[in-house]
């Protein structure tokens, strides 16, 4: 019997944090985060966090538009993390508010503590990340993650930005789980494009998700795609992506410390 049980034993010693990222907006990051989360939730204890604190929209995807407490309150030091966690669709969902004042009062660095706290109680964390690389807070989710999932559309600016996101991630010691081609409208050349894209990305192509009205309808209904249209083609593609996203057993060193030491808070 061990005399000392590490903190990470609380969740079997396993947690992996993924940042769902892209350089451009409109690629479907939030839809992808929620869909991957629901697909992974069939086997894992999953927590999804809206880390896009300046352009939050997870609350609209999860039917949480009326949520009293959000990540903004936690980042402002006005609420405990637990108060912003909502059990929805088989996952723990941490939405973020949409008000400008909430964003202004939030202290982005507190995200580290949020991730560290939740990491002790879940198997998989998905961070819906900002579509930008120009500020410290925008990049923080990528720094905190073990691996990123790059959401791409088959356009040059999206690929170019995806490459930049990957470079930031790898420079900061974060791995690449793979790429997700999203909102694909034309499939004739997409396989060739996916193959050519793979040579530049460290992960594989997790799935090609077709453009579909089901995605828009789910968003309007305030439900994740996999809850609203589980039989749709994009839902099937996301399940395939999640199956390929083999969640890794992380080392048993104390989980919280891993995230607390991920960055050095130095504002001096």
């Amino acid at each position: 019997m061990p005399a000392f049980i590490p903190e990470s034993e609380a969740n079997g010693g396993m947690v992996e944090v993924f940042a769902v990222a892209s350089g451009k907006g409109g690629t479907g990051k939030t839809t992808s985060t929620m869909a991957l989360g629901m697909a992974l939730a069939s086997e894992h204890d999953v927590t999804v966090i809206d880390a896009d604190t300046g352009m939050a929209n997870m609350l609209f995807h999860a039917g949480l538009a009326d949520a009293d407490t959000t990540l903004h309150d936690v980042l402002a030091g006005e609420a405990a993390v637990e108060a912003a966690v909502y059990e929805r669709f088989g996952m723990s969902v941490v939405p973020c508010g949409t008000s400008l004042s909430g964003f202004q009062q939030a202290e982005p660095d507190r995200l580290r503590t949020v991730v560290a706290t939740l990491a002790a109680e879940t198997d998989v964390i998905l961070l819906d990340s900002p579509a930008a690389l120009g500020s410290r807070s925008a990049v923080l989710p990528i720094v905190l993650a073990d691996r990123i999932v790059v959401v791409l559309q088959p356009t040059i600016p999206s690929l170019s930005d995806g490459l930049k996101v990957q470079e930031y991630a790898t420079t900061y010691g974060t791995g690449v789980a793979g790429v997700l081609f999203n909102r694909v409208t034309e499939d004739e050349a997409i396989d060739r494009i996916a193959t050519k894209t793979e040579q530049y990305f460290e992960g594989e192509t997790l799935a090609t998700v077709p453009e579909s009205d089901a995605v828009r309808d789910a968003r309007r209904a305030g439900e994740p795609l996999l809850a609203h249209a589980p039989e749709s083609a994009p839902a099937a593609a996301y399940r395939k992506a999640a199956a390929r996203l083999a969640v890794r057993d992380r080392p048993v060193d104390p989980v919280a410390d891993r995230f607390r030491s991920a960055v050095i808070p130095d504002h001096s």
Binding site: L133, R136, V139, V143, I156, L159, S160, L163, K164, Q166, E167, Y168, T170, T171, Y172, G173, I193, K196, T197, Y200, S261, A262, V263, I264, P265, D266, H267
Partner: peptide
């Protein structure tokens, strides 16, 4: 675009350099 390996390598190198420069400003521990 994807067939132009040199161009893509150039984009990656610049992003890597930018990430390193910014890490220092942002206080990220590389």
């Amino acid at each position: 675009f994807l067939e132009d390996g040199d161009r893509i390598e150039n984009i990656r190198e610049r992003a890597h350099d930018q990430a390193e420069t910014r890490a220092e400003e942002w206080g990220f521990d590389l």
